[in-house]
Simulated assay, not measured.
Amino acid sequence: MNLNTRQQQMLDQIQAENELKISDLKDRFNVTEMTIRRDLEKLEKLGDIRRTFGGAVWIGKDVTLQVRSGVLMDEKIRIGKQAAAFVKPGESIFIDSGSTTLQVARNLTQIPDIIVVTNALNVATELLNANVQVILTGGILRQATASMVGPITTETIARMGFDRVFLGATGYTPQQGFSNSNLYEVEIKKLAIKHARESYIVLDHTKFGTNQLFIFAPESEIQHVVTDQAADPHLLAGLQQSGVNVVTV
């Protein structure tokens, strides 16, 4: 999506300041309030900002799924295989968007009678020709992550109950818990955890010790973490002391 000079300047400013007001933008650029609202609507479609009453806030920019899919693939494949081994025949599970959660989906095709609910197009496509019942949540498509978000997505998840949910994370610290760079994705993760019997975080070692803007779960809400053997042993030990089942592969 191409941005004009004013829109690019607005994007740079909101990234630096985290929040902007329509009244300030109108004065700075000497345009009408309607013009500013149209600009913010366009920027929101990029997935970088979220409009609020009277302005907009920065919600972070994800590394695209295409880029993430080519990083640490050996580790992600092992993590996905191990995480999928927890799923039992006949269970209903939720899988969110991500390159590691995709690897979970790839190892579910031989488990009978399961139902997979997902907001991720890559997960649904992976299971398209498998003997697995798939339910897509619907919602607003985010191109960067090939995921569906927004009120339609949350309303769908709120009507369901899952045996297990498998979620990615872009950050974990003992102080923050598990975090993500995008507010829309965080809303989905929080709701999935709330409606699950057991919650699993699948993440590679590079996410440990990293803070992201939006927290979606403290350690107390997560039952299992599956990661690779290069993860910080002190942080893993802290998770185990908090009662989390930590599996390294």
Rank of each mutant, 00 (worst) to 15 (best):
M1A: 10
N2E: 14
N4A: 07
T5F: 12
Q8L: 13
M10V: 15
L11C: 06
D12C: 14
I14A: 08
A16M: 03
E17K: 13
N18M: 15
N18A: 01
N18E: 12
I22N: 03
S23K: 08
S23N: 04
S23A: 12
R37K: 13
R37M: 03
D39R: 08
L43K: 09
K45G: 12
G47S: 04
G47M: 10
D48I: 15
I49T: 07
W58A: 09
K61R: 15
V63L: 12
T64Y: 03
Q66A: 15
R68I: 08
K76G: 02
I77G: 12
I79K: 13
Q82R: 13
A83E: 03
A83K: 03
A85T: 02
A85R: 11
F86V: 14
V87H: 13
K88S: 07
E91D: 02
I93W: 03
I95L: 09
Q103D: 04
V104G: 06
R106T: 14
L108K: 09
Q110C: 10
I111Q: 06
D113I: 04
I114Y: 03
I115F: 06
V117W: 11
T118R: 11
A120P: 04
L121G: 00
N122P: 07
V123G: 09
A130R: 13
A130E: 13
V132D: 02
G139F: 07
G139Y: 01
G139D: 03
Q143G: 01
T145C: 05
P151F: 14
I152S: 10
G161C: 03
F162A: 01
D163A: 09
R164E: 00
R164I: 00
G171R: 00
T173Q: 09
P174T: 14
S179A: 14
S179G: 06
N180C: 07
S181F: 05
N182F: 02
L183D: 07
L183I: 04
K189G: 01
K189L: 07
K190E: 10
K194W: 00
D204K: 12
H205F: 05
H205S: 14
H205G: 09
G209H: 00
T210W: 01
T210E: 07
N211M: 04
I215S: 13
I215H: 03
F216E: 06
A217F: 13
P218D: 10
E221V: 11
E221M: 12
Q223D: 12
Q223F: 08
H224A: 05
V226P: 07
A230W: 05
P233N: 00
A237Y: 00
Q240R: 12
Q240E: 11
S242L: 01
G243T: 09
V244N: 02
N245E: 15
